[in-house]
Design a protein around this nucleic acid. Sequence first.
DNA 1: TTTTAAATAGTAATGGTTCTCATTCTTATC
DNA 2: GATAAGAATGAGAACCATTACTATTTAAAA
Lengths: 138, 138
Amino acid sequence: MFRLTHQRKVILEELRLAHSHATADEIYERVKKRLPRISLGTIYRNLEILASHGRIRKLDFAGGQRRFDINLTEHYHVRCLNCGKLKDVVLQAPLSFDGLVAGPNGYEISGVRLEFLGLCPECKAVKQKGAREDAGNK
Amino acid sequence: MFRLTHQRKVILEELRLAHSHATADEIYERVKKRLPRISLGTIYRNLEILASHGRIRKLDFAGGQRRFDINLTEHYHVRCLNCGKLKDVVLQAPLSFDGLVAGPNGYEISGVRLEFLGLCPECKAVKQKGAREDAGNK
DNA sequence: TTTTAAATAGTAATGGTTCTCATTCTTATC
DNA sequence: GATAAGAATGAGAACCATTACTATTTAAAA
């Protein structure tokens, strides 16, 4: 049976305090300040277990590090192509994929993984600045 | 400038011959039969370069290994949650995400990453068989 | 030809994640 | 309360996909 140990409580708290979407090692750094003897393995093990118990959401997405989310409500994310930052995204209309996948392949579809890609405001500003300087140096 | 070296040609050919969605090491095994002295680093480097030149598509998706696709037309994939196999998927209607993301976050959206999750026919069969046996043993 | 830039093979290094195992905590049972 | 059984922990090793490094080879440009 599942025990909500002290370590797990602290992990949940710190995941909440981190402005969401933390990686295992970010959580590790945070938790270590409160529980200096905790090990990285414990963080990984518990993030996994908490996810399998539906207490947190695993954002097992593309390239690089896995991230975790305490926000269990249905929502999607944008990933900055430049710095990799992940942010929640608000959709104008709810998405539905029901009946979208054609039948013949015989798969039983049970979900989708969707994330948006783009440039965050900060990286956009830096890139535009860079472009202007390039133009000036010609 | 970009050179279509012999190694690169063979990599492209083998990626085409592999029933699509091959991983770097699958390509490596295939190419090695024709070019025994090729190194895995060359495979990785060239898959990356070929992708950046738009000759192939990088499927930089969740958990596990990166995959590559010679099919450059817009299409999506289903991943089997059990065995991890990746298959092309045919949609009943084209997808459009234009204007779907609400403005205020200031991101400049340039794309989406989407994959479907489910059980492939084979794994579905095995699971159902397993379930029947479980029931029988009770 | 000579020069210069790219690409390659081979191998070491990285880094996120998982595994192992001895030890410590909890909870259930006597 | 003592004890037994199961979970969870900490520490570190192991794993493995991917990258980085470097001496050498290859091909294009001058």
